[in-house]
């Protein structure tokens, strides 16, 4: 589903260069649920941005759903984001002036789907996340958990090939986090690939595979000497708290 080989991403300013990803490689199979963990500055967000075609990279290759997406135009990337990728953000990223229906409708309109089909998809998605009675509520009239469920419904309505979730429970309390994770698990069981960036070991444990990032590289904890692995593990754990 997702295959990155030797990806390099350098952020440059007049004064410094920051190597956000260095020889970064990863493979995610179709139907997997992968949790990506790492401390602040480890390159998680850069990976997420590149994986979601929100940002470009300097070197390496990236194949998404069998397609080489390394050098696409802005419009082509927009099309893939719209049709193949579903995004779940930590801050929900709902549009405050639009109600639940219109928020879910946003990516469907960019796909130029007919109104009747959009309505059908929206209602089905809202029903799945259990918010049908709130379909004409504004985000400000919903709790955090409900807003994240709306964001998930926005993803579901688009029926993407894979989902990128950026700290999906980062702004939620324990109970709401559990509800959201249950939903993601259910979506994954239905066959959708999910890559989730998280700080929370509990959330990460719901994934079928965990990947750790450190200084822009994937770290295989098992490959490190026991003391290094412990240190890395402790370092990661302290970051994750």
């Amino acid at each position: 589903m997702l295959s990155m080989k030797k990806i390099q991403k350098v952020y440059r300013t007049d004064l410094i260069e920051t190597h956000a990803l260095h020889d970064f490689s990863i493979d995610v199979r179709t139907g997997e649920f992968v949790a990506v963990m790492g401390r602040s500055g480890s390159g998680k967000t850069t990976f997420l941005n590149i994986a979601g075609l929100l940002d470009t990279f300097d070197q390496g290759t990236y194949h998404l759903d069998g397609q080489d997406v390394s050098r696409l135009s802005d419009n082509e990337m927009s099309k893939i984001r719209n049709q193949k990728i579903g995004f779940i953000f930590q801050s929900f990223n709902l549009i405050p002036d639009l109600d639940v229906f219109d928020n879910i409708d946003v990516p469907l309109r960019y796909r130029r789907l007919p109104a009747a089909e959009r309505r059908e998809r929206i209602e089905k998605a809202v029903r799945t996340v259990g918010l049908l009675s709130r379909i004409h509520h504004l985000p400000s009239q919903l709790s955090g958990g409900q807003q994240q469920r709306v964001a998930i419904a926005r993803v579901l309505a688009g029926d993407p090939r894979f989902i990128l979730a950026d700290e999906p429970t980062g702004n939620l309390d324990t109970m709401m986090s559990r509800e959201v994770m249950d939903l993601l698990e259910k979506i994954n069981e239905a066959g959708t690939t999910i890559v989730m960036v998280t700080h929370t070991p509990e959330c990460a444990s719901r994934a079928s595979r965990q990947i750790h990032l450190l200084d822009g590289e994937v770290v295989d904890l098992n490959a490190l000497p026991p003391e290094d692995a412990d240190r890395s593990s402790a370092s990661l754990a302290s970051t994750l708290q």
């Binding site: 929100l54 419009n75 099309k79 995004f87 953000f89 549009i95 946003v106 990516p107 960019y110 796909r111």
Partner: peptide, 16 residues
């Protein structure tokens, strides 16, 4: 600005 970024992430082209 953030809303525009979100729209772009959801598939909006610059033209949209």
């Amino acid at each position: 600005t953030r809303q525009i970024g979100t729209r772009r992430a959801l598939g909006a082209r610059k033209l949209d």
